[in-house]
């Protein structure tokens, strides 16, 4: 979208990455993910992926990191050396650790890793997270129809805080997880964080000149969700790209004192 504050260049990089992830996901044997649909755990808000047995292929994971690095270097030659350094630090053991920490969104671990090895702070988690996502997305594909969202727990598949919804059909609101692409319906006027559906304590923020989006803000928990009418779009982007291109809505909501993951700050970064 024209209005986006994210540079075209970065959007393109993200689109390329999304394309790669789609390919990677397709190359996986669906059986590597064995979900354990524990109803009790699920209704307590434990993400399905946390309960599933996922058979990670470490050498494949490392190969994906190589492919990612190449994609980044294609756009930013100056990063070639840095990324090479990171790669040389990665052995099977660290790779396993990376998968674990990426899964639990442990940015403290990655920041320390970067500091200890003298590399840019964003690089380790960026690589790990993006190479992990195909597994999460595969899991979401498998359990999409059975996973049930619990207000306050974020994505029922990967645990990512809810922050993005799209309107479908006659105006049905569907929450989309930008991380694993899981999606689940919700009432049009309802907070996706605390479940509040009292229209008196829910308000919408709109941005001047933007006809297709609004931000649902809950006075009860101070949480927000971006609601985008992608029915009006000429072509629908993936949830990850949509989340990225609508990042200015996050800024607007946060400036107004709302949070994407209210009361759950340690996982929201």
């Amino acid at each position: 979208m024209k209005k986006s504050v994210v540079s075209k260049e970065y959007q393109n990089l993200q689109k390329e990455i999304a394309k790669l992830q789609e390919q990677w996901k397709k190359s996986l044997n669906p059986d590597v993910v064995k979900p354990n649909l524990d109803q009790a755990a699920m209704s307590a808000g434990v993400p399905v992926a946390a309960l599933a047995a996922i058979d990670f292929d470490i050498s494949l994971f490392l190969q994906w990191i190589d492919e990612l690095s190449k994609l980044i270097v294609d756009q930013h030659q100056e990063l070639e050396e840095k990324l090479g350094e990171v790669r040389s630090l990665l052995n099977e053991e660290t790779a396993i650790r990376w998968i674990d920490e990426a899964f639990s969104l442990n940015s403290i671990y990655f920041a320390r890793f970067a500091e200890e090895n003298g590399i840019d702070e964003w690089i380790p988690q960026f690589l790990a997270e993006n190479a992990l996502r195909p597994y999460l997305q595969l899991t979401a594909d498998k359990v999409q129809d059975v996973a049930k969202a619990v207000h306050g727990a974020g994505c029922p598949v990967c645990g990512e805080p809810a922050r993005l919804a799209q309107l479908e059909g006659e105006g049905k609101k569907v929450i989309h997880c930008p991380r694993c692409h899981a999606h689940w319906p919700e009432k049009r006027i309802q907070c996706s964080h605390c479940g509040n559906d009292d229209h008196k304590t829910i308000q919408f923020i709109t941005v001047e000149g933007e006809a297709s989006s609004q931000v649902l803000c809950c006075e009860k928990c101070k949480g927000y969700t971006k609601v985008i009418d992608t029915r009006q779009f000429i072509s629908r982007p993936s949830s990850a790209i949509l989340d990225l291109t609508s990042i200015h809505l996050d800024f607007v909501a946060q400036e107004n004192g709302y949070q994407a993951a209210p009361g759950n700050l340690e996982t929201n970064n």
Binding site: M1, K2, K3, E210, A211, S212, R231, Q232, F233, I234, S235
Partner: peptide
């Protein structure tokens, strides 16, 4: 609207789907 990646207003509003873009 096209410049913003949105379909023409008439198309998005057509309920029986008589218009596509």
């Amino acid at each position: 609207r096209l410049e913003e990646g949105l379909q023409p207003a008439c198309v998005t509003t057509c309920h029986p789907g008589a218009m596509q873009f």
